[in-house]
């Protein structure tokens, strides 16, 4: 009977579905059972996740491991009790001292502007950039590396962009900072200032096509119109409506709350080390 069915119709109806790789689904998040003995419901500051973003795990479900993340958070707190890791943002000017056995005084100090920051847990890192002797220099530091002796924030501020990689193609004066820069102190409780400086880029060729990156902190790029037309073709305006893409890139609110409640007992210690580092800054600036 089947042979009477025309071949095309047969294949329409009895087509095999394409082979799919079966992946385990991510179950919905279930909140931790709060222990009534310990005071878990301490009020947390609202800027916890902007000051300590590396305490949140990598959101890719394939790479998640709750036990490993918890152990890493413990190690991070232990390391923070030894070396004060200050609050900083992209655009802050920092000085980092690391142990260097080849240097004469066994340490190496570098001053620069933080141009990018990433990684989670013990592998969190940041990049510092400076121009020394007309040579652009960038050094990546791992925040929890045992080589790090001291991290200072010389000027705490934010910029208009999330990454300052375009400083590589900017005029050198925008990423030149003196190595003997004095720390600048903010008044207690003041919000972090946003530096709305507009950087001037060198003429092309560049490391990246900056006209496609929607940069806020650069002056007019001065390109011919065809570059902007091409950039317009590469825009992805639908991405802001992709709710699941947005969701897969974040840690859900409930899970963040659980993580920060877990480290809440250490919050006093974190804050005091933050304050101590500020005081040390004040002393060094006085002399």
């Amino acid at each position: 009977m089947l042979s009477a069915v025309p071949r095309r119709i047969f294949h329409t109806f009895f087509r095999k579905p394409p082979a799919q790789r079966v992946t385990a689904k991510v179950p919905p998040y279930i909140r931790d059972q709060l222990d009534s003995n310990t005071d878990n419901e301490q009020p947390l500051p609202h800027d916890f996740r902007t000051v300590y973003p590396e305490f949140l795990p990598d959101p890719r479900p394939e790479w998640r491991n709750r036990l490993r993340e918890r152990l890493e958070r413990n190690d991070m707190l232990t390391r923070r009790s030894v070396v004060a890791i200050p609050e900083f943002y992209i655009g802050s000017i920092m000085a980092v001292t690391v142990g260097d056995r080849n240097a004469s005084d066994k340490t190496n100090r570098f001053v620069g502007i933080c141009i990018s920051r990433g990684g989670t847990g013990l592998r969190a890192w940041f990049n510092l950039r400076n121009v020394i002797d007309h040579q652009g220099l960038e050094i990546m530091y791992e925040m929890y590396s045992p080589l790090i002796r001291n991290i200072e924030v010389l000027r705490l501020e934010k910029r208009l962009d999330e990454e300052l990689l375009y400083l590589r193609d900017a005029l050198p004066e925008y990423s030149t900072f003196p190595l003997d820069m004095e720390p600048e102190l903010l008044p207690e409780g003041a919000p972090v200032p946003i530096n709305d400086i507009k950087v001037k880029l060198k003429p092309r060729p560049w490391h990246e096509r900056w006209e496609r990156k929607n940069l806020q902190g650069v002056q007019d790029l001065g390109l011919p119109q065809r570059f902007y037309n091409k950039a317009k073709l590469h825009e992805k305006p639908w991405e802001k409506y992709d709710l699941m893409m947005e969701y897969r890139a974040t840690i859900p609110e409930e899970e963040q709350a659980d993580i920060f409640h877990e480290i809440a007992p250490h919050y006093q210690q974190l804050e005091s080390s933050r304050r101590q580092s500020k005081r040390r800054l004040a002393q060094t600036s006085r002399y």
């Binding site: 949140l56 890719r60 990433g118 990684g119 989670t120 947005e246 969701y247 840690i251 409930e254």
Partner: peptide
């Protein structure tokens, strides 16, 4: 590969 922190999103109630 750092979690996005600009927006707080409540957890999905279904498996994904």
């Amino acid at each position: 590969n750092q979690a996005e922190i600009r927006k707080l999103i409540p957890a999905l109630r279904v498996a994904m």
